[in-house]
Design a protein around this nucleic acid. Structure first.
Lengths: 231, 231
DNA sequence: CAAAAAAGATGATATATATCACTTTTGAGT
DNA sequence: ACTCAAAAGTGATATATATCATCTTTTTTG
């Protein structure tokens, strides 16, 4: 019960953010005074590429997809956001516009914090500033490896990466109900949905996974890791 | 003459960095006291992926390539560094290791500044910290568009992008001696060197450019831009 | 300056992957 | 429970692009 309340409380959620620790009580209070919550249904846009970066967002509950809107309406999903994550893009300290779109995959409760308050913290607290730099750097690093993966690995390697990412980073379990459909799995791995389906089937035939529509179970993780590494 | 001296002086070089303006004289002095210079010949490694991030680098003169070392020795050139640029990677505020390699393309004079000093500045000067965040964000943004370009554009579009990048950002002229060979142009655009050669020839046949080995001249920039946008 | 090495160029072939057209299954709403 | 729309799945075909083999040109170096 206690856990449930914590899960749904905006303030509790922010505590999960690594960088929150660097703030004084006063600074935490400052954030609390400038936050508001909003709920989203699956498919709803939380923020859209091109719109002003007026707030920074914490995901309180639910899952969302972060994606680049590419050419001819082709998207690239760059990550899945889950509770406790702070989401802010590179436009926050640039043109003040979002450069990716954030869409709810499930019911989502999000906590919006005024961007000006968050920016103030950089000036008030240098440890926070350092933490923020570290945070942005980590995301930048992910993009490097995403770029290598998407341009240099073949389809089975990319799909294996996606499955391992979901299992390890998102669901923290080797069996899960995937919230991405085949199309979205394609947007995450840069492949056509038909190819996702075919290779998923190959994985099943090879005994790497079982996949019943939305449910995926990893049967042979070491082998899946090898597929990820070799192609 | 005066210009030449300025070009080759480490301190003068840093002044070109946008974020340098935010520093006090005392802080500028601090940097000056912790810098040292080194010279590199074409092909020499300035820093290598995996090595410790002990310094931040300013390019005083010459050009260098920033590249990711991908799978099976296949590289991805992410940018060309030219004088006045501050080069530091996402590992600086993370695992303290470089995640890309920096190699001299011409004779290079580089100015190394102790990383600890640079990190100290984040704590001493919040405007500097904000500038650094802005700097990192800008680089992150470039990676987004690089990812879209490399995964969604076809070869002619990617190669057009590369030529426009070199003309607009690097040489600031529509005619230039390219310091990247065909292999490297391929590493920049994610294509085989043979494909670079073929499409470069197509561009010539279509009157977009002239290309005599290392010299490239853009003849029809609007058309080249259209190639960049449409594929 | 000649020899060797590196880079550029070219054509033939192989292959990974997208696209298209279609069928089947699943799930949501009345 | 029935209907309809969306998602999943399948096979045939098209295509962008890499790879390989080979040759030529340019650059480097003893």
């Amino acid at each position: 019960m206690e856990k449930l309340i914590a899960e749904n409380d905006c303030r509790a959620c922010m505590h999960r953010w690594e960088n929150f620790k660097t703030l004084t009580d006063e600074q935490k209070q400052l954030i609390s005074e400038h936050r508001y919550e909003a709920n989203f249904k699956p498919g709803e846009i939380i923020f859209k590429k091109g719109s002003p970066t007026s707030s920074v967002i914490f995901l309180v509950s639910g899952m969302a997809k972060v994606f680049l809107e590419g050419l001819d309406g082709k998207n690239i999903i760059i990550s899945i956001a889950k509770p406790g994550m702070m989401i802010s893009g590179p436009g926050t300290y640039g043109d003040l516009r979002h450069h990716f779109t954030l869409t709810a995959l499930t019911n989502v409760k999000a906590c919006f914090i005024d961007m000006l308050v968050m920016k103030q913290l950089v000036h008030l607290n240098s440890s926070y500033a350092e933490g923020l730099i570290s945070d942005i750097s980590k995301k930048s690093l992910l993009m490097y490896y995403k770029l290598i993966g998407l341009t240099q690995k073949k389809m089975p390697g990319r799909l294996a990466d996606a499955i391992l990412y979901l299992a390890n980073q998102i669901y923290e379990s080797d069996e899960f109900d995937i919230i991405l459909n085949r199309q979205e799995l394609g947007e995450f791995t840069n492949m056509a949905k038909e190819s996702v389906i075919r290779i998923l089937k190959d994985f099943e035939d090879d005994g790497l996974i079982t996949s019943n529509c939305s449910r995926i179970k990893i049967l042979d993780k070491p082998k899946l890791q090898r597929v990820s590494e070799n192609g």
